[in-house]
């Protein structure tokens, strides 16, 4: 995902802001890292450039 995506993403649980933590990037593409709910503390992983923003109860794979 590109960092500019942060402008339109929010925590699916309560629509509050997300904080981005980056482990690996390639130019402006964020490959690995996580998005963290500033209110809920929920951690949403970014893997292979795809943020998984399913609420925790739907993340069963």
């Amino acid at each position: 995902m590109k960092e500019s995506l942060m402008d339109i993403l929010c925590d699916p649980l309560d629509k509050s802001d997300l904080e981005l933590e980056v482990d690996e990037r390639d130019d402006d593409e964020i490959l690995e890292g996580r998005l963290i709910g500033t209110e809920t503390g929920e951690v949403y992983p970014i893997e292979d450039g795809i943020p998984n923003l399913l609420p925790p109860d739907m993340r069963d794979d």
Binding site: M1, D11, P12, Y44, I50, P51, L53, L54, P55, M58
Partner: peptide
Amino acid sequence: VVRADLFSP
């Protein structure tokens, strides 16, 4: 690409 349930995030 974002994994999401409709508009939730």
